[in-house]
């Protein structure tokens, strides 16, 4: 949940990825989240090219399969589309409609925080609980084939 300045203009793509090794968030998901983030903030527009796999790999020293996995996930979410030989391009928005929903969700989250606070949970406790729940959630709704479901 750190908000860094995600972007600096590089020739090809309007955005550049960064990694937070200490976040515990899988690398491919960090890339997905940064694209979503850039879409919300308007750094990315439909039609923009995402950084080429080679550029990301050379910049971050990560496995190219990780970048491909992130881009596949973005395609699956309908946010990007791959054009053979050209790259992956933004093909959706996270703007208008979801924004209203986002506000509603945010209100629900604030309400949750209030009750967590009343239950005696401090800020770190909330983050820990949220992160943990998010991990489990990702696991059960996982995008990794879905063959293994851990009941909890």
């Amino acid at each position: 949940m750190t908000i860094d300045k995600p972007i600096s203009g590089d020739e090809g793509s309007p955005i550049e990825f960064r990694l937070d090794p200490g976040s515990g968030v899988p690398t491919y998901l960090q890339l997905v989240q940064q694209v979503e983030h850039a879409l919300r903030l308007g750094f990315l527009q439909p039609g923009d090219r995402l950084p080429k796999v080679k550029e990301v790999v050379a910049g971050l020293a990560i496995n190219p399969n990780t970048v491909l996995k992130a881009y596949r996930e973005l395609e699956r979410k309908g946010l990007a589309v791959g054009r053979p030989g050209q790259g992956t391009f933004v093909d959706g928005t996270l703007g208008t409609t979801p924004l209203r929903e986002q506000q509603a969700l945010r209100r629900a989250l604030t309400a949750w925080m209030r009750s967590a606070d009343q239950a005696g949970l401090d800020e770190d406790g909330m983050v820990a609980l949220f992160t943990n729940a998010l991990h489990d959630f990702r696991k059960t709704t996982g995008t990794t084939g879905g063959s293994e479901v851990i009941a909890s």
Partner: peptide
Amino acid sequence: RHDFMAALMTAVAE
């Protein structure tokens, strides 16, 4: 180390 791995991963990608 970072530069070496970046070069290695670029070779994998290319």
